[in-house]
Computed example of a mutant assay.
Amino acid sequence: MKKVQLENTDIEITPIIFGGNVFGWTLNEEESFRILDAFVARGFNAIDTANNYSYWVPGNVGTESERIIGNWIKSRNLRDKIILATKVGGRNLIQDKPNTTKSHILKEVEESLMRLNTDYIDLYQTHYDDTKTPVEETLSAYNQLIKEGKVRYIGASNFSSERLIESLDKADLFNLPGYKTLQPEYNLYDRKHFEEFLQPVVDKFKLGVIPYYSLASGFLSGKYRTEADLEQSTRGEGIKKYLNERGVRILDALETISTRHSISYSAVSLAWLMEQKSVVAPIASATKEKHLDAFLEAVNVQLSHDDLKLLSEASEY
């Protein structure tokens, strides 16, 4: 499978990244191993997770996703074949607010490395911006980790445009490592915030974009057309906001192009996202092996100018 390069790095990944938020949440360890095996068997190589995924699940502590991925990597002996991205600085059971202090990052990275059964992280990302911590303090922690060989590159997620600019400017000013990637919420439905506020920053600093919620929590898969459909999923309540006139218009456009190319709604949605400026690879999850077929369809389909125009116009905000 053809690979794409993350901006300003030597990291090459396949065009879709697996989102590890499902591990320890909607998939147990055995099921997670099965879906990861199927993912790499199809030629993909990049996985994104965080040190706090699934902390919201009763009985979980929030480290389940990293631990499952680490157990899988160790059992399959695949570390050198996988591009591994994780995050630090998000909420968890112990703290209810972001924390990007140097001491916190240096502590958390050791625990992530241990859970992931690796001695380095390819892409270490600030999960949420802790606005009380100076950006140069956060970057100084990453500087130390890069020098120690524990982290290759750093990325940002869930930043305001102002703080992202400040971080990138301070990195240059103090000769500290700068963010190479941005992981924002961005999909065919959720376009406005990224395109209006973050896209200009991405363009100026040449960041690689790896969007999360690429399928809008499953709404863009087309399986949710009515409120009754929401009962099919644990994410149902969060999808309700998409069931409006604009959402239906987007689904209608997806149906047209899905039929035209004989591929799934999910594949069309991912393919549209992959064609957007600065997007290197969208992040998407799967809970069943058949869901991975959409990943391959998205990589292999060539949407026409008219296809892209129809989708962009249907999703105008």
Rank of each mutant, 00 (worst) to 15 (best):
residue 138 T to F: 03
residue 138 T to N: 06
residue 222 G to D: 01
residue 263 I to V: 14
residue 123 L to W: 10
residue 236 G to W: 02
residue 213 Y to K: 08
residue 137 E to D: 15
residue 240 K to V: 06
residue 154 I to Q: 06
residue 47 I to Q: 03
residue 250 I to L: 08
residue 256 T to S: 10
residue 303 L to Q: 02
residue 309 K to I: 04
residue 109 V to K: 11
residue 233 S to W: 10
residue 150 K to G: 00
residue 4 V to N: 10
residue 25 W to P: 05
residue 198 L to A: 03
residue 28 N to M: 09
residue 160 S to L: 06
residue 8 N to Q: 10
residue 51 N to Q: 09
residue 37 D to I: 07
residue 164 L to K: 09
residue 299 V to A: 07
residue 40 V to P: 00
residue 224 Y to H: 02
residue 262 S to H: 15
residue 223 K to R: 14
residue 41 A to I: 01
residue 306 D to T: 12
residue 156 A to R: 11
residue 219 F to L: 01
residue 95 Q to N: 11
residue 264 S to E: 06
residue 257 I to E: 04
residue 313 E to Q: 14
residue 290 K to C: 12
residue 1 M to F: 11
residue 208 G to H: 06
residue 228 A to Q: 12
residue 7 E to R: 15
residue 309 K to Q: 13
residue 224 Y to G: 01
residue 181 T to N: 05
residue 155 G to T: 08
residue 317 Y to A: 01
residue 149 G to F: 13
residue 111 E to M: 06
residue 134 P to N: 01
residue 5 Q to N: 14
residue 77 N to P: 01
residue 256 T to M: 11
residue 160 S to Q: 05
residue 166 E to T: 13
residue 129 D to I: 09
residue 139 L to R: 08
residue 221 S to T: 15
residue 249 R to F: 02
residue 283 I to D: 01
residue 9 T to F: 12
residue 159 F to G: 00
residue 254 L to H: 05
residue 221 S to P: 05
residue 104 H to G: 04
residue 315 S to K: 02
residue 266 S to A: 15
residue 43 G to F: 07
residue 273 L to G: 04
residue 243 L to C: 07
residue 4 V to P: 00
residue 260 R to H: 13
residue 103 S to A: 14
residue 124 Y to D: 04
residue 111 E to P: 00
residue 134 P to Y: 03
residue 256 T to C: 05
residue 306 D to V: 06
residue 85 A to F: 01
residue 176 L to D: 11
residue 223 K to E: 03
residue 55 Y to G: 11
residue 72 W to Q: 02
residue 251 L to I: 08
residue 46 A to S: 14
residue 145 L to M: 10
residue 202 V to A: 08
residue 97 K to D: 02
residue 39 F to H: 08
residue 8 N to F: 00
residue 54 S to W: 01
residue 68 I to C: 03
residue 217 S to C: 11
residue 160 S to A: 09
residue 206 K to I: 02
residue 244 N to I: 05
residue 98 P to V: 04
residue 215 L to Y: 07
residue 9 T to H: 15
residue 96 D to Q: 15
residue 41 A to C: 07
residue 191 R to I: 08
